[in-house]
Amino acid sequence: MSTPLAGSRALITGATSGIGKAIAVALAGLGAQVIAHGRDADRGAQTVEAIEKRGGKARFIAADLTEPDSVRRLAAEAGPVDILVNNAGIYEFGATPDTDDKTFDRHVNINLRAPYILAQQLIPPMAARGTGVVVNLSTLAASVPARQAGIYGATKAGLELLTRVWADEFGRSGVRVNAVAAGPTETPGTAVTPGLAEGLATTTALGRVASAEEIANVVAFLVTPAASYVNGAVVAVTGGQLAIAP
């Protein structure tokens, strides 16, 4: 088995289910020692077990990404890492008049501020060592207007801009920063709203929902040496755009 990430340490936020768990399993399979973040210790243990059953190495850290001090503790407990995947995020749908302050703050704090703090804490040490990779998980809704998803899309659009800023800020120090914009994907999160992913899939050229593993495969490519000249990119893993027709 190819192990291009052997000897590296990877922190993945939101790694206890869905895309995050698939990323954790994929990177461990490529040789990385995985630090899986989440909120639930039982689900964290399941991610670690899934990795260890495949011969990989992993440990779990619980942290509340809505609290800045908790995010900084996560960075401190993770220690020096070679790979940071800012995967954790929330999406709570609602029209602008129905979005209260708490909903607004949750999206900003988890989707935007937490990745920013982790970047502050973990990228400078990468830069000092002259190597490192960051991948931010975004969404099609960051570039295409999505009904009922204004604040969700706005926070992810902000994360895409930060991706480009960090790519410039740290690129000459040997740190690459990219983003993956995911399309409709089958996860436990989307399953909470039956028909959501399937409905969105009808707007894609492929006409189907992605699996979490299909998104994880692209993240895995971006963090390996095979993507050594990819920096500041937002890679669309969205199934393609339908053509406009009269």
Rank of each mutant, 00 (worst) to 15 (best):
I215D: 11
H37F: 08
S143F: 12
V134G: 10
P80H: 12
L161V: 14
A179V: 03
P80K: 10
T185H: 03
Q241T: 13
A114T: 07
T238P: 08
E198D: 15
V34Y: 04
Q46D: 15
A181R: 10
Y229H: 06
R72C: 02
V133S: 07
T139W: 04
T139R: 05
I61A: 00
I151K: 01
G189M: 13
A220I: 02
A78S: 13
T203K: 15
P68S: 09
I19N: 08
V81E: 08
N87K: 03
T155H: 01
V25L: 12
V25H: 06
R172P: 10
L5Y: 08
R72L: 02
L74N: 10
L161T: 13
T190L: 05
A50R: 13
D40L: 07
L200E: 06
L30A: 10
G7N: 08
I19G: 12
A154Y: 06
G183E: 14
A75N: 08
I123T: 02
A191Q: 11
G239E: 13
A41S: 14
D98N: 11
V165P: 00
N178E: 11
L84M: 02
E214V: 04
S173F: 07
A127G: 06
R39W: 14
L74R: 07
A243C: 05
N87C: 07
G207A: 06
A62K: 04
G240E: 08
Y91N: 15
V81N: 00
A179M: 04
S211P: 00
T139P: 10
A15R: 10
P184M: 02
L242N: 15
K57Y: 05
A128I: 11
L137S: 09
T3F: 09
A62C: 07
K57R: 15
V219L: 06
G240F: 05
A212Q: 01
L27K: 12
A50W: 10
S143N: 10
P184D: 05
A75T: 08
N178R: 04
L206P: 03
T3Y: 01
I23D: 11
G20H: 06
A119C: 14
L65N: 09
I90Y: 04
R54A: 15
V177Q: 01
L196W: 06
A26N: 11
E213R: 09
G207C: 07
Q46W: 14
G18M: 11
L122F: 00
L162E: 15
G20N: 06
P145C: 08
P115L: 04
E92C: 00
A95K: 08
T224A: 12
V230Q: 06
T47S: 13
R59N: 13
D82E: 09
V133K: 01
S173M: 12
R172T: 11
R129Y: 10
G29E: 13
G158R: 10
K53H: 14
A45R: 06
P80I: 04
S8L: 15
S2D: 14
A76H: 12
L11D: 14
A10W: 03
R164G: 05
D105L: 15
G232R: 03
R9V: 11
A179Q: 01
E77T: 02
D168F: 00
E169Y: 00
E198K: 06
D64S: 04
H37Y: 12
A50M: 01
P225R: 07
V134S: 12
R208M: 06
A227T: 01
G199T: 06
I83T: 01
